[in-house]
Design a protein around this nucleic acid. Sequence first.
DNA 1: AAAACGAATTGACCACGGTCAGCTTTCGGG
DNA 2: CCCGAAAGCTGACCGTGGTCAATTCGTTTT
Lengths: 191, 191
Amino acid sequence: MTEPIQRRARATRANLIAAAEAIVAREGFGGLRVEQVVKAAGVAKGTFFTHFADKDVLMEQLVAKRLSRLMDALQTARRPSSAKGLAATLGPVIELLTCERYVFDLVQRASLADGPIAEALSRLDIIITGWFGGLFGAPPFRTDLSPKVMAEGIRAFTLMAMARHVARPGKQTEPIKALATQVEAYLMPPE
Amino acid sequence: MTEPIQRRARATRANLIAAAEAIVAREGFGGLRVEQVVKAAGVAKGTFFTHFADKDVLMEQLVAKRLSRLMDALQTARRPSSAKGLAATLGPVIELLTCERYVFDLVQRASLADGPIAEALSRLDIIITGWFGGLFGAPPFRTDLSPKVMAEGIRAFTLMAMARHVARPGKQTEPIKALATQVEAYLMPPE
DNA sequence: AAAACGAATTGACCACGGTCAGCTTTCGGG
DNA sequence: CCCGAAAGCTGACCGTGGTCAATTCGTTTT
């Protein structure tokens, strides 16, 4: 569960993760089966569960890894100067987290618990908070709220936009546009 | 799946629902097992799935029934006159939807799809929209947004508050207070 | 009333995540 | 080098949701 001690165990774990990544690349996150993973890694099923408390824990790691890469990119991005720009900046994140229904559900469950996904998302909060300047927001955004509250609001809107997107397969729900509307209403109220 | 034609089938379906409600009353939503339900209703397992596409469909109906009763109560409630009042008014809804992790996850999945839960929640949107008056909000709330956008914003904040509450078993997260903070920021910006 | 046909029901079966008592490997100390 | 303890691994087994070919029941037609 925690980082293994012996070299053999570390190798096993790495094999499991590598096998899982290959399967995800081929069949998507939702298509992964634990039996497949252990077979590909050449270990017994029970071994899987000595390394990961359950399937979700592994999946969280895989998703978090990708999410983390997006955070690296965002960290060097320019501070957006409008609500629309802010929404657009979040585009890649939205795309990843809504690429499959399975992924979205997983993230939703994990987004406020302890774990790598919550960690990655809190990085996002920190980045956004940074964009808003110091203790309070900075123009052109409103300046009466703490960045923490603002970041949480943005997170709520983002989740909502993604949820609608994922719930309506087929229909183009334009999550980024919907997000921009809400973010603008929230961060740039009239006057 | 859809309303059965023969009298016998309608009775079977009613038995299944009654059995399920009894089990939920005893063991909670998350404790319900399909095998239990069919045993209590005196039918075979396969029968269950001719009446409900899957377990979730039944559970949605049970939760939606309770939710619907809350909507009936809300419909006759007075229009709240502050953000805090608005948040408090949503208290019973929050309480129901966060009474179990299982319920919250179910609702989250169902809240934007087709089905009884989405229907009940859209009733809530209509009620809230009504509170905001006509085409736009009404004082003391901001008046530059359409009620539809406002209702969606409130929904996003509500889900977020509930998600945090459910994700932190033990810790008192005061979802109503958190919700009030966001709603106030959103609906009553300075100036 | 008998035949014919679709609705409803059945239960053995499957897929898949997860468990656990027992076995094997690794490693530190004598 | 050997031994004992701890870490790691195994695979038969389980619980639970869901499937489907076969069968029974109810209704309509002749």
